[in-house]
Amino acid sequence: MALTVDNISKNFGGVYAVREVSLECQRGEILGLIGPNGAGKTTLMNLITGVSPSDSGTVMLDGKRLNRLSPRKRAYAGVARTFQNIRLFEHLTVRQNVEVAFTSSEFHRARQASRITIDRLLDQMDLLEMADRPAPNLPYGYQRRLEIARALALAPDYLLLDEPAAGMNRLESTALIDSVRFIRDEHGCGIIVIDHDLRFIMNVCERIAVLHMGELIALGTPEEMRNDPRVIEVYIGAQDNNGEAATPAPRPSPSDGETTVERPT
């Protein structure tokens, strides 16, 4: 029972965004994905969710090949995600945002009927009180939590979080650590999480994969990653001993993965 990426590659105009990456996330595992800007983290997430097609390699979900499926069918198959640049449904309320995912997949994701209700999801993400407010009116941190609640409404087997702690203060990101752990325990899904906030990643993940220039350069426990010379060289270089980034975490630039696959609506 795992989400497996095997030897996957993607290049944009001759430049490899992701190159021959193989990775596996077990159900019930929290896997971190880190790397400097432009390392290919979001591109990898887009390849897994089908937002952009891969050039080569396979994506398998519990032994089922996902390669040819559309993002919608991959959602039905059990992969849900959040977006780095928040993509809520603007004109809808908080509850309706969750409802869209909940109802669209109801037929395909039979489990959710017994296990999940919209109110429970909102409650778990501390959104119940603001359920009837328009989604864009939420504070930033809550918008990120709503993205997670919405993804969970698909009753996913694997949840992909693209920078869930971005823009959160220390208090909020600490609360998010508990939430992510709770989601894993409650919903039993495998979670892949991308973030630049190393304190958050080191605390929440059981294993961490490090991407650099589209290639997977290291994979292991947070402790191993902290001491891995290759990782220190390319990414954590300017860091002190207790896992805190000495320099502020770089923010996503407009050239980062997701924006390159923007589609007209």
Partner: peptide, 21 residues
Amino acid sequence: RIGVQLRASATNMLAAEAMGV
């Protein structure tokens, strides 16, 4: 439900697809 899902897709097509719409 159709209306709500359709309005969701109208504001963000990419997210709507990812949410199974």
